[in-house]
Design a protein around this nucleic acid. Structure first.
Lengths: 277, 277
DNA sequence: GCTCGCGTACGGTCCTGCCGAACGCCGAAG
DNA sequence: CTTCGGCGTTCGGCAGGACCGTACGCGAGC
């Protein structure tokens, strides 16, 4: 956006990638995606498409910085504690991390559900903080991962703040994959649903992302009036009588408004739609 | 360790480091340690000791993998969401991470304090998981960082499982720095304290690491009978009447025993001390 | 005891990472 | 409005170093 006149390079940043660094980071991804506990050196080399020597040099460098560690029986590599530390610090450097933690705890306690907050990363929700409710079942709710926008409460809450063209672009790019029998997979139905989200002030994911799981989300607004992300609560649908939905939605909306206030959003403007901020 | 006959290289692994990867990882550390929100490109180059071109190439590569992100006003770099995701996954790949989560929640709820679990990394405690209590004040309790062994409850719980020579070696290396007026800074006093820890089955950090903060920790044992880490609870000392210390210690000890059971430690051996095995 | 596979160590060759210098843009100063 | 300085970005060239192939020691399996 800043360099409007891109002279010749259409590929963009790919020309200035550092090969060995890219390989090292791909090695980390490889180990992160490893199913169980660890990969052996040969598997790393094969996965990277390099020789064992190269894989070892990269792995040694990563290990020295604590990104990797080797578990001793038949040396295998797993992710190390440095990533834990960096992930913790990343959560604090991201705009929403520590700011909304107390409010998430409150929300999780009040609803008994797992409360999370996501930043809007090009329309996609990326969850950056998670607080489990007191009796909440452990969901697999990874942090830092891009979730689908059309089938999650946080995603729909974010989409509802955008205009139709932007929604169309994002959904075209993401593909609107079917995740359950309730997933909205066509644009007109989604646009109708987003209009409902705007009216109510919160979004509902009713088994649209996973069977038996219900989420309620509400959008956050930053100091510039733009959408900064969303909060959402997640629970087992069977545990929640339908008549509580409005109550949960109100709580989520209220928490979102308070977080928006912390972000510097003027609370006097109630309508997220209307004119362009 | 494995290569007993090291022919010439005394430095060890330093010869096989990949320079550009090491620089990239140092760049990440640099940004992680940045006080506020982000560093500019010039600051990165200065901090790395390289030219701006090199710093930019490294930063671009890191950005493409999501390790860094740039915040828009006057482009500055902060840690990205990929580190969040990797940190989350690292917690699951580490031996203790997901295993003890429910028990930590239980412990935090029962005591009202912040419950944490640490792995033993060469005698040092490295906290890998944290669950805040319901009304607990927010401490600055970073994950993944090596804590001091002699002034923390988790550290002393781990040290209490080692023999005197190992304790002496670790404390010589770490230096036993004074952190508060209550810190134990000489070896004989520490050894006495560790004997008490062994008798009681839990360790107490009574304002030894930070003024006004009290921690209680208990060691974990793995399937091989060795110490795998420790659990600890942290709270404001003023909130805890002295007569509750034994009760909290009992809960911590109980939680540690149950986690040890999950790790495959034979629970028929009640005494953590006794023989060496 | 033998073989096999793995992780490790080293030398050579070419790649590529690194730097210095030049360009365009933005904001500040006058 | 004009001028100036700083910053991020881009490009060319050199040589440092990243990569590979090969050889070694060790432990496991039969």
């Amino acid at each position: 956006m800043r360099t409007a006149a891109r002279p010749a390079t259409a590929a963009g940043g790919d020309r200035y990638l550092v090969q060995s660094v890219a390989r090292a980071l791909r090695l980390v991804e490889l180990i992160a995606d490893a199913p169980a506990a660890g990969l052996a050196l040969g598997e790393l080399a094969e996965g990277l498409g390099t020789s064992k020597s190269t894989a070892m040099a990269l792995a040694r460098t990563l290990m020295r910085f604590g990104y990797l560690r080797d578990v001793h029986p038949g040396p295998r590599y797993t992710l190390g504690t440095a990533l834990l530390r960096l992930g913790d610090q990343a959560g604090q450097q991201l705009p929403l991390g520590p700011l909304c933690r107390p409010l998430l705890v409150e929300l999780a306690t009040a609803t008994g559900m797992t409360a999370r907050v996501a930043v809007a990363d090009g329309g996609y929700p990326v969850f950056v903080e998670r607080v489990d409710g007191p009796g909440s079942v452990r969901f697999h709710t990874p942090l830092g991962q891009r979730e689908v926008p059309h089938a999650t409460a946080a995603g729909k809450a974010i989409l509802a703040t955008l205009d139709e063209a932007a929604v169309r672009r994002i959904c075209d790019a993401s593909g609107m994959a079917r995740r359950t029998g309730h997933t909205i997979t066509d644009l007109p139905t989604l646009l109708d649903n987003l209009a409902l989200v705007r009216r109510r002030g919160f979004a509902v994911d009713d088994e649209e992302d996973a069977v038996g799981v219900l989420c309620v989300g509400a959008a956050l607004f930053g100091h510039d009036g733009g959408c900064a992300g969303a909060v959402s609560v997640t629970g087992i649908k069977g545990d929640l009588p339908a008549w509580r939905l409005d109550q949960i939605g109100r709580r989520a909306r209220d928490a979102a408004a308070r977080i928006s206030g912390l972000l510097g959003h003027a609370p006097s403007r109630p309508g997220p739609a209307g004119g362009g901020g």
